[in-house]
Design a protein around this nucleic acid. Sequence first.
DNA 1: TCCAATCTGATAACGATTATCAAATTTATA
DNA 2: TATAAATTTGATAATCGTTATCAGATTGGA
Lengths: 135, 135
Amino acid sequence: MGKYTTKHRLKIKDFFKSQGRDSFTAGQIHQALTEEGYVIGIATLYRQLASLTREGFIASLQDGAVEKYYYLGWQEDCHNHYHLKCLDCGRLFHLDCSYLQNLESHMKEDHGFIISREESTLYGRCINCSGKERK
Amino acid sequence: MGKYTTKHRLKIKDFFKSQGRDSFTAGQIHQALTEEGYVIGIATLYRQLASLTREGFIASLQDGAVEKYYYLGWQEDCHNHYHLKCLDCGRLFHLDCSYLQNLESHMKEDHGFIISREESTLYGRCINCSGKERK
DNA sequence: TCCAATCTGATAACGATTATCAAATTTATA
DNA sequence: TATAAATTTGATAATCGTTATCAGATTGGA
């Protein structure tokens, strides 16, 4: 995909380039673009997000059940680390940690399981939220 | 929830008790019950699954984006281990492994992140599928 | 410029889940 | 056991994020 260079395609890439490391749902991206007066059909946005994901420009992760998140710069180093997502504040943490690399080796050698870093987000409570009261 | 003991409630509990450790979507459960001639409204099934989950009789995990899985016997020991889900065959592996407990401690002490085991399913390729050809 | 390949947008369709609400069932009480 | 209040049920409409459809617009190469 991505045979033609269209304005929407460029716009979406620019959006990610301008947004650092945060993650967004398709709906959030559509809203952000709309709010700055940029008009794009929701179907087109989904198509381009899928295309850019296939190409490795962005990547998607599951957020709970429903929505997807898209990341900038994934292709550079996000496959080299793990992600921690806080169940309270929703923030995503990018974690370079040799412990996880060892875990990967362990899983492969002792359990025959090849972990996919991109898919294996760890969920829990971040340092800011773990102290607060919880139900 | 679960104030009244209804036949549907008992039936669903029996279903899980008879199914060992596999996980099911609501749709799969509904289909299984229907195939054995048991009639239950889909809304009722969802309600009971939610209720039984709240009570800890079963638990749910995300399967990719959409569906939920429900487990029997979770309350006994599933919160004591991690789950590995194979991206190829879809099977879920229950893994007791001290490595993961150490990982938990490490995350807490060195990164301030409290991992939730129930939520943190690891994804990858299982021992049966990792050898096969892949795209 | 012309044409075939590709992309776009409006909208219908989809699949899983939840909400609605009247009717049926369960439980406690008499 | 009869009664009534609380709870559950089922049919179905609604919801939400996402994908499919398809005619019309855009792109890029000849």
